[in-house]
Simulated assay, not measured.
Amino acid sequence: MAQQDIKEISYEDLKALMEKSQNLFLVDVRTKEEVDKGRIPGSVHIPVDTVAAALSMDPEEFKAKYGVTKPLPDSPNVVFHCQMGKRGASATHTALELGFISAQNYAGGYREWSGKEGK
């Protein structure tokens, strides 16, 4: 799957998902240092270089490591983000390759989020 085939969602789309979906699985792929400075509420920190390994874990191992239930490959709302979009797109591409058919990238990333949220 080519990089340009990645579905991106907007800030408004992400806010709507956060408000209405119990099934949103939001993954922050930034470094620990970046996450320590601020994060989108409800996001799970899985650094970009560990996304393939994390999504390949069995569900029990995933829950033990990340404290949340691993999404199913056909989960409708699996969204990745980073600071500005590039690493999020890379992680989304990895997820798609692993069969997470609805993986999306929040291209605005934490930079856009924190600006719009006044953080």
Rank of each mutant, 00 (worst) to 15 (best):
M1Q: 06
K7D: 09
S10E: 09
E61A: 15
V79Y: 11
Q4D: 14
S114I: 10
I101Y: 00
F80H: 07
P71I: 03
T31F: 06
R111Y: 03
G42A: 12
E8W: 03
P73A: 06
A2D: 11
G42L: 10
S114T: 07
G115M: 13
L72G: 08
K7L: 11
T92Q: 08
A103F: 06
E33G: 04
K86A: 12
S21C: 07
G38I: 07
E112M: 11
A53G: 06
P71D: 03
A52T: 00
G85S: 09
H93E: 06
K119F: 11
V68R: 11
H81F: 15
G109N: 10
G118W: 04
G42D: 10
N77F: 12
S114C: 08
E33R: 08
R111V: 10
Q22S: 15
G99R: 03
K116E: 11
E34R: 02
I46A: 11
K116N: 10
E97V: 03
N77K: 06
E112A: 07
M57T: 05
G109M: 11
G115F: 00
Y11C: 08
A64Y: 00
L72P: 00
R30H: 03
S114A: 13
G118R: 04
D36T: 14
S102C: 02
W113P: 01
A64D: 10
E8H: 15
S21K: 14
K116Q: 12
I101H: 00
R30G: 02
Y11K: 10
K20P: 00
T69A: 13
P47D: 05
D5Q: 14
D49V: 04
E117A: 13
M1N: 04
P47F: 12
H45F: 08
Y11F: 15
E33W: 01
R87L: 09
K20Q: 13
L55W: 03
P73F: 04
V68P: 12
F100W: 01
E97N: 07
Q83C: 01
K15N: 06
I101W: 00
I46W: 07
L14N: 07
A103K: 05
V48G: 02
A107H: 05
T92A: 14
E8M: 09
Y106T: 02
C82S: 12
V35I: 13
L55D: 00
M18K: 15
A64E: 13
S102K: 07
P47T: 03
E34A: 06
Q83S: 05
D49L: 11
V51S: 08
L26P: 08
K37E: 14
K20H: 08
N77H: 14
P71N: 04
I40A: 08
R87N: 02
S102Q: 05
A107I: 10
F80A: 05
R30S: 04
F62M: 05
P41L: 04
E12V: 14
S56H: 02
G118C: 05
V35A: 14
K119H: 11
H93M: 12
K116L: 13
R111H: 03
M18P: 05
G109H: 10
Y110N: 05
D58E: 15
H45M: 13
S43K: 09
P41C: 06
Y106R: 10
A95S: 09
M84F: 04
S56E: 10
A95W: 08
F100N: 02
